[in-house]
Design a protein around this nucleic acid. Structure first.
Lengths: 196, 196
DNA sequence: TAATTATTATACAAATATAGTCTAATCATG
DNA sequence: CATGATTAGACTATATTTGTATAATAATTA
């Protein structure tokens, strides 16, 4: 497949589509609308993408790709484990902001867009990366050997979900403070030291 | 025409449609979608409204109606003229927030919805009210006799437009402060008293 | 400049989505 | 249990959207 990455019209199309998909989801936005808004003719559009779904995949792919690059950089960095973990949670939260409700709805409830499978595959890829991260940390002794990786994966999902609770978050100055609390609970438990 | 105002399904339909229209404009939203979201069957929908445009008109009509009621109440109130004027500006601003960009776009650029004429008529009606307000104020001596009403109408439009300028608004603690400044400029001019 | 390439506007048929109507079944509610 | 309100779903007629083909125009390169 030809590489259009440096083509301005191509980038314009991606940018416009991303904005429209973000606001209204994929279904509500027509190819013609994207073309008009991006100042690209329909024929040029079809030179770049065979259809709307493939365009959406390219956009989602880019989003995911950027997140993965950030994550890999973090893993390789020289930060202490606890800070890596903290940043990892923050990245997960941030990553969620990359998707609007409209978009999520369309991706997961519109079967004819066939994006659900695509996103689930991407999700699995990122789970693999996180699993490796935890496994390494376990091997290096940062995590007790008898803790199951799946527990950690599930736990981090839970943390992210808890952050959607506004009443809870209102009790912390910054999201970071909540994450540190959650991490402390994970590492040291919630039992007072004197009780141990 | 039958009066459905107290009918729960009718109100549900209005509420859901308003939310969807607000988010995505009118064109992007389908009748079927509104029905589904509101938990109302298509047949019931068509009992209430002959089509989407009439539904939209009802919603817009309600919005405008509420604004007019508020305005009339203000005019009749016992507040001093300067305060009435101040509140009037605030109401105008507030009124603008009742319309999202998406909605405005649809209303004014979608000829087949035939809502442009509708809104323009409503706008004229409100201009009449404001004109009367100014004329009364002029007769009562609150405004110099030689000032043209059209100047005042145009001026108040300008004030509202100025408030869209974020850099400008950032210089005031509250929108009210800006309005008071604008009103002072209108009534007393911007020339220092000592220079007069 | 001439040749080559990219882009556009427009028209178009086929596929898809939406609007609006009808019927029979189900649900409430006095 | 009878009556009116509501629903689900089928259905047709429109309207919209997609995706392709063509000829004309603009931009780029040799």
């Amino acid at each position: 497949m030809e590489d259009f990455k440096k083509n301005k019209k191509f980038q314009d199309t991606l940018k416009t589509a991303k904005e429209l998909f973000w606001k209204h989801g994929i279904k509500r936005v027509t190819i013609e609308e994207i073309c008009k808004e991006a100042g690209v003719s329909k024929m040029t559009f079809y030179k770049f993408f065979p259809n709307k779904t493939e365009l959406a995949k390219t956009i989602l792919e880019n989003l995911v790709q950027n997140s993965l690059l950030d994550f890999n950089e973090l893993v390789k960095s020289e930060l202490p484990f606890s800070q890596k973990l903290e940043k990892m949670f923050l990245m997960k939260i941030e990553g969620m902001n990359n998707f609007s409700m409209e978009l999520i709805n369309d991706i997961y409830t519109n079967p004819n867009l066939e994006l659900k499978e695509f996103m689930e595959q991407k999700k699995n890829e990122s789970i693999d990366l996180i699993t490796n991260f935890y496994r390494d940390a376990q091997n290096q002794g940062f995590i007790r050997k008898d803790v199951k990786i799946d527990f950690l994966l599930s736990y981090s999902d839970q943390i992210v979900k808890m952050m959607e609770n506004e009443n809870l978050m209102a009790q912390y100055n910054k999201p970071q403070d909540f994450i540190i609390e959650a991490m402390n609970a994970l590492f040291f438990g919630i039992v007072k030291k004197s009780d141990q």
